[in-house]
Structures are given as structure tokens and as C-alpha cells.
């Protein structure tokens, strides 16, 4: 759970850095984003890492299902009057629920962009690359799509808020000093990823409306 989670977190940084190219002026963004996408798709090393990524998503999901099953079994009969919530954060107790939101979003996200790009027919841009940029921009013209995106990213943000530091504990980081560092870095990471990913759809949506 920890190792797959940390790999997925690492991927989020790379994915965000790539997507920040969408914030460039429209014409420049279109050419650069499309050639970047082609670069990624054509590189054998990137392809291998992509397979590791798919595997991590599957393993992370399976592990989550296993943990939930084990929790249910270990809990036995539930409390009739339960106020245990005061001792922990709501998002640390609801990682599965947040994970389900993220998973549903991923299915939509993969279908709309990844599947279209890999297996669909896309028009070509001036450089002869598949025009993923226009596909993305058109998708974010829809308000409901932007809202869906923001909800999913917020769920991801809370998931990371607990997940990043929790993963380090699971791996065995027990030194108090490094723990406080990781705790702070985890919050910074979660906030940076959330803000970064939310800015893109908002920018595209409002830019188009203006």
C-alpha cells in the first residue's frame, strides 16, 4: 500500500508538470502539449514506467479492498454509541471512500483522454501530432466537467494529506525529527498537488468564457 501509494504520488508530480504546459498561451500550448504527449507515447522507457503505473493502480486498489475486508472482519460487532472520531481526522478514517471517488474519476479520466488519445481518431495539429490539447480544452468548456474534476482533486488532496505521511510510517520511518519533517512535507505536497491540478481546469474554463 505504502510503496504503490508513494509511486503514484511521484507520478502525480510528473503528470502535473506536464499538464502545466496547458497554462501557456493557447497556440504555443497546443503545439508544445501535443508534441510532449507524442514524446511520452513514443518512448520505450516511459512506456515501461506506464505499465508499472497501471500495475500500481491495480495493486493499490486490491490492497485497499483487502484492508477493508480485514477491517470488517476484525471489527466484529460495531459499537452502539460511537464517538471515537474525536481522536483522529475524518480523512484518515475515510481513505477508502476518498479512494473510491478517485477511482471513479480515474475511470472517467482514462476514458475521456487516455483512451481517446491511444485508440481514438484525433485530428492532427500544425506539426502533425495528434491534437490532444483541443480535446482537453473542449472538455473543460463544460461547467459540470470542471466541477467533477475539482471534487475529485479535492478528494485526492485529502487522500494525500493522510496517505503521504502514513506511507512513510508503514515503511518504517520512526525517527521523531524525520517524522515531523515528513508530516510538514506531506501537507505541503498535498496542498501543492491540489492547487496545481485545480488551477488547470479553472484556467481553461474561465479563459474560454472571457
Amino acid at each position: 500500500m505504502a510503496i504503490t501509494g508513494l509511486f503514484l504520488s511521484f507520478f502525480l508530480i510528473i503528470h502535473l508538470l506536464g499538464n502545466l504546459q496547458l497554462l501557456l498561451p493557447a497556440e504555443e500550448a497546443q503545439l508544445q502539449y501535443n508534441s510532449y504527449s507524442r514524446l511520452l507515447g513514443g518512448n520505450i522507457l516511459v512506456k515501461l514506467v506506464a505499465y508499472v503505473l497501471y500495475l500500481c493502480i491495480i495493486l493499490h486498489t486490491l490492497d485497499a479492498i483487502y484492508l477493508s475486508y480485514k477491517r470488517k472482519k476484525a471489527n466484529g460487532i460495531s459499537y452502539s454509541y460511537d464517538r471515537r472520531g474525536r481522536a483522529s481526522t475524518w480523512y484518515s478514517r475515510n481513505m477508502m471512500a476518498l479512494g473510491i471517488i478517485i477511482f471513479v474519476f480515474l475511470v472517467i479520466h482514462f476514458k475521456d483522454f487516455w483512451y481517446h488519445y491511444k485508440f481514438g481518431e484525433l485530428p492532427l495539429d500544425a506539426n502533425g501530432n495528434k491534437d490532444l490539447y483541443t480535446l482537453v480544452v473542449v472538455a473543460f468548456e463544460e461547467l459540470w466537467y470542471v466541477i467533477l474534476y475539482i471534487i475529485a482533486i479535492l478528494a485526492l488532496g485529502y487522500h494525500l494529506l493522510h496517505g503521504v505521511f502514513s506511507a512513510h510510517r508503514t515503511i518504517g520511518l520512526y525517527h521523531p525529527m524525520y517524522n515531523s519533517m515528513v508530516q510538514v512535507l506531506g501537507v505541503v505536497f498535498a496542498v501543492a498537488i491540489t492547487v496545481g491540478y485545480i488551477v488547470i481546469p479553472l484556467y481553461l474554463y474561465f479563459n474560454l468564457q472571457l
Partner: peptide, 27 residues
């Protein structure tokens, strides 16, 4: 069950045993 690091245990522990012990056990 498994530990998912919610840290509720230390909060309610009468002896305030640190959750960092769990990290040490994992290590």
C-alpha cells in the same frame, strides 16, 4: 486488523504510548 496510521490509539492510550513505536515495528 491492519494499522492505517489514523493515530487514534495514542490519543486514547492511558499511557500516551507513541505511534512512532508502530513505525519502529514496521522498520
Amino acid at each position: 486488523g491492519h494499522c492505517t496510521n489514523t493515530e487514534a490509539c495514542q490519543v486514547e492510550c492511558p499511557e500516551d504510548i507513541s505511534v512512532l513505536n508502530i513505525a519502529r515495528m514496521n522498520y
